[in-house]
Nucleic acid binder design. Sequence first.
RNA 1: GGCGGGGUAGCCAAGUGGUAAGGUCGGGGUCUGCAAAACCUCUAUUCGCGGGUUCGAUUCCCGCCUCCGCCUCCA
Length: 469
Amino acid sequence: MALRFFNTYSRSIEEFHPLDPDGRAVKMYTCGPTVYSEAHIGNFRAYIFEDLLQRHLELRGFTVQRVMNLTDVDDKTIRGSRAANIPLAEFTAPFKEAFYQDLDTLQIKHADSFPAATEERFVQAMIAMIEKLIGRELAYQADDKSVYFRINRFPKYGHLAHFDLAELRSTGRVKSDEYDKEHVGDFALWKAWDEEDGAVWWESPWGRGRPGWHIECSAMATTLLGEQLDIHCGGVDNIFPHHEAEIAQSEGCSGKPFVRYWLHCAHLLVEGQKMSKSLGNFYTLRDVLAKGYRGREVRYALLRVHYRAPLNFTWEGMEEARQALARIDEWLRRLREAAGAENLPANRAVAIEDDKFAAALDDDLNISAALGHLFEQIRESNRELDGGIDAARALAWLQWWERINRVLALEAGAEKPSAEIARLAEERVHARLAKDWQKSDELRDALQARGWDVRDTKDGQLVTRRAGA
RNA sequence: GGCGGGGUAGCCAAGUGGUAAGGUCGGGGUCUGCAAAACCUCUAUUCGCGGGUUCGAUUCCCGCCUCCGCCUCCA
């Protein structure tokens, strides 16, 4: 079955075919974070969805070239740097670093490039684009010295969001001093310097100033990926105005369709409500880790709901993620044991022909159906394990899993017991041989308190790292 | 008001014009010194509400209720 995605532009499911004549190379652009603070779990829901998309495309044989921008100049970053009384770059650097660490924690593949808006070559690219837009009368400099995009000259403006511009209602978020524009919907391409910007400015044909948010993405995307992209992603809140503006700017310059497939993920709710600091339900990834959860558990919790459905983040859901992963861990442990420590030649295993997991993902990334199938197969193979299976069969199951895990990226890293854990475990073995059950149970409690589960099997004691510990 | 996305078991959630995947939780069982894990087993006469089409609708159509989001720089 062909790969297909819901395209926000057409509001329908479409078969996916990249622009590449060979049908293999995929150019993908994803809006990244504004680095004025640590990213929150809602941000990561979007990045995990994009990671799932990239990994599945790769599983299906596509070569994905992916760009994710970092917005390191805007009102919030400038405000933060002034409050901290340090230069802008110094203010944003630790948040960039934290972001990369968080991506690793969540096993999100790094993009091929993470362009930052303040890089000189991109600023120059933005200026060049704005000049071109002015030359085509798609932009103008207003009395306030800022440059705006003239939306009335771009008839497609509003198509992505399916908005009729005449019916737009103001929500009061428009700054009241923006009366220099020809149309309230005209958006800033270049913002003239004002005192609030402090030392943050670049020279331009229109005087000192800084780029508008939307032009950053257009410039970085077209500089790094070319005038036409296959896929562009983000959260639904980016549809309007951000992505709408990107289309207007990019196509205004190139005259070519900017993006073939627009994919947007729904929001994350926390305990049924929008995440907000005032409600006290605002969490960064690090907040969740501080409660004792691990990155893979957060990844599972944010991954398991279809990207176009709202995802309700709850602590109960985190526990569910922990249990589900523990089940996968135990299944893998048993399979490895059955496959044997010695390296069985891979060709001894009769491959398990089962593509249902990936086939589910072909259908607009139906992760729930895919995971449902995984767990059905886990039950099936556990039955086989209970009945005693040969090493080749166990290896075949492991190979089946490894393919799936290229997309899920949920496997735990191996962790060796410390000397203390090993000593406690050894003592417990002796206690059990002496049938000293009281001491045995005490040692088990001691190990569990240190994050290790202890089980007694027919082959002896088994000590494993507890999920989430 | 306009434009979207949801409402399926305690919780999360898939799905189809033909009689409800999967996860998690809970009950029972096998196993165990006790546990744990694994496996077996039970838990929605029912898919927000009301109509309609149909032999048959959770699925299609109409109306309504409700939650969430966007409507000019929030993933």
